[in-house]
Write a protein that binds this DNA or RNA. Structure first.
Length: 283
DNA sequence: AATGCATCCAACCGCAAGCTG
DNA sequence: ACAGCTTGCGGTTGGATGCAT
């Protein structure tokens, strides 16, 4: 027995939504909440399938959605997250409040991908492009590598030991800032965190030193500062931005691991080694 | 003004995961 | 364990728009 289609296609409308349809859907969901998308079109008086209604609501009508282009900061987050998660757009979107997976996916395909290529970075692997760029013949290989993105930090760490290091994130940041000079600038979405003498004032914040350095000096080749911020505090992303701006540790680069919600100063290729260290500490 | 091309993004499609009986 | 159903995800498409010629 074959699979039933998601909806009875006969007599159902497809294509762009009209204002009238939007209003019907908004009114219905605001009144009844989100439940049983299959039943929504019938109850809301729409000639659409439930899937189409769900998509319209989640990608366009939801009141908590941000509109407009992604900010520089959001773009950087997307790049960092993509480096760690691959094409898991919904997962990436979950770290960007008010943004949808579709929006991020579109932005990636139309803007970021192009920028990275222009900067000589492979948008699939986030590593410097070789002389041969990824053409159609190599797409399959790239796909396979992407599908094998390790789940845990430990796995990622193990992999990195034998692989080419990732592109220096500060290079990406600089290039993006340069590139974005010509674009419309948007204000930083969040207020910067309070910092006293280079240390965070909130009790939720910690500063830790590297495992590899029995001394706490960040000048150790594997040394780094780690900052963790309360999940409920939206300032976490700004901590990274702020420290980036501060030129806090000359010779070190600021990285943010959005998945584990930690930021850290690292030296060149030590990015994932440091992430691994953070992961070890958190378990 | 007309045409062709490139770009963008909302919406669609097919598949897989998750849930329930 | 299995089948059927719903929901969610990621890849892809095609219409709208902008720009160059």
């Amino acid at each position: 027995m074959g699979r039933q289609p998601c909806c009875d296609k006969v007599g159902l409308k497809k294509g762009p939504w009209t204002t009238e349809e939007d209003n019907k859907l908004i009114n219905f969901i605001l009144k009844n909440g989100q439940c049983c998308w299959r039943a929504v079109p019938k109850l809301a008086g729409l000639l659409r399938c439930g899937k189409s209604c769900r998509l319209r609501w989640t990608n366009y009508l939801r009141p908590d959605l941000k509109r407009g282009l992604l900010s520089d900061h959001e773009e950087k987050m997307v790049i960092d997250l993509h480096a760690q998660l691959g094409n898991r757009w919904s997962k990436i979107a979950s770290y960007l409040p008010g943004r949808t997976d579709n929006e991020i996916k579109n932005h990636w395909n139309t803007h970021i991908k192009k920028k990275l290529k222009k900067m000589g970075i492979d948008p699939v692997t986030h590593r410097p492009l070789c002389s041969a760029t990824i053409d159609d013949d190599n797409k399959e290989t790239a796909k396979q590598r992407e599908s094998s993105v390790p789940e845990t930090m430990d796995e990622r760490c193990r992999e990195v030991v034998v692989e080419t290091p990732l592109m220096d994130q500060s290079t990406i940041t600089d290039a993006f800032e340069e590139d974005n000079k010509n674009m419309e600038t948007s204000p930083t979405p969040l207020d910067p965190p309070q910092v006293n003498n280079g240390f965070f004032s909130s009790p939720d914040e910690i500063l830790a030193t590297s495992l590899s350095s029995s001394s706490s000096s960040p000048s150790n080749s594997h040394g780094g500062f780690v900052s963790s911020v309360d999940n409920n505090n939206n300032n976490n992303n700004n901590v990274g931005s702020l420290l980036e701006d501060l030129d806090f540790l000359p010779g070190f680069d600021w990285h943010h691991d959005y998945i584990n919600d930690v930021g850290l100063w690292v030296e060149d290729d030590d990015y994932f080694k440091e992430l691994c260290f953070v992961d070890m500490f958190s378990h």
